[in-house]
């Protein structure tokens, strides 16, 4: 992320300070998961291992970015009475396309994600961003806003998955990192990490740490 931002800084005005803020903000100050508490629904179950979490993060980023872009392009033509349904249809179509691609090129991951790919449709981040941002902004900032939010979501996902995979099965991205000698000495993988409840508790702890560091975040 840091590298990306350094490169993009030269490209004014496409990446003006205001646009950059759209990208960086969601990573920390207005993170969709920990601060806005959106989009947790379809996320936590895919964080048992890093790989599905990464794929999920990328899928969500793609869907948010492109749905933001499309809605922003046609925002002035959408009749407000059928606004929500138009948004839902576009999001659903994008999710179907992503799902078809996953089934074709990443079959094993798509099997692990199972219904949670479909649940991207109702991921509150997407609808939230469409309503709050894309409906009132030009396409390019909307696109950046989408990518920023997707990444902010992805970062939390990967952090949670990192701890769950490391502590739960002693692996990172499927590679064994806890050496055999540890197991011989009596170390046991924490099976609880693999089970659903720990995902919630880890997120709770992440929120705790984040809010302790940046005190200015308003408590709701």
């Amino acid at each position: 992320m840091i590298n990306n931002n350094n490169i993009t800084k030269n490209k004014e005005p496409l990446f003006s300070a205001k646009n950059l803020k759209l990208l960086k903000g969601p990573l920390n100050e207005v993170n969709p998961i920990t601060i806005q508490v959106l989009g947790i629904c379809s996320a936590l179950a895919v964080t048992v291992q890093i790989k599905p979490a990464l794929v999920m993060a990328i899928s969500v980023t793609v869907v948010v970015a492109f749905s933001n872009l499309i809605i922003s392009l046609i925002r002035n033509t959408i009749p407000s009475r059928i606004r929500i349904i138009v948004q839902l249809i576009i999001v659903a179509a994008l999710v179907i396309i992503v799902d078809q691609f996953l089934k074709a090129y990443m079959y094993d991951v798509s099997k692990k994600l199972s219904v949670f790919v479909g649940l991207i449709i109702t991921n509150c981040i997407i609808m939230g961003r469409l309503e709050a941002f894309a409906m009132n902004n030009k396409p390019w900032p909307s696109f950046l806003d989408g990518i920023g939010n997707g990444l902010g979501y992805g970062i939390i996902l990967v952090i949670v998955a990192f701890f769950r995979e490391l502590l739960g099965s002693g692996k990172i991205l499927g590679h064994q990192v806890v050496p055999q000698s540890f197991y011989d000495a009596g170390y046991i993988d924490n099976g609880l990490m693999i089970l659903p409840p720990m995902a919630l508790i880890i997120i709770g702890i992440i929120i705790w740490i984040q809010r302790s560091i940046s005190k200015n975040i308003v408590n709701n």
Binding site: I82, I90, I97, Q100, F101, A104, Y107
Partner: peptide, 25 residues
């Protein structure tokens, strides 16, 4: 008219993707 056009466009896009990726799946 708006919703009809939207549905048609979306349907075409999805069906095309689905058909092209089907053999691979």
């Amino acid at each position: 008219i708006y919703s009809t056009i939207l549905v048609i466009v979306v349907a075409i896009a999805i069906t095309l993707t689905s058909l092209t990726l089907k053999p691979k799946q």
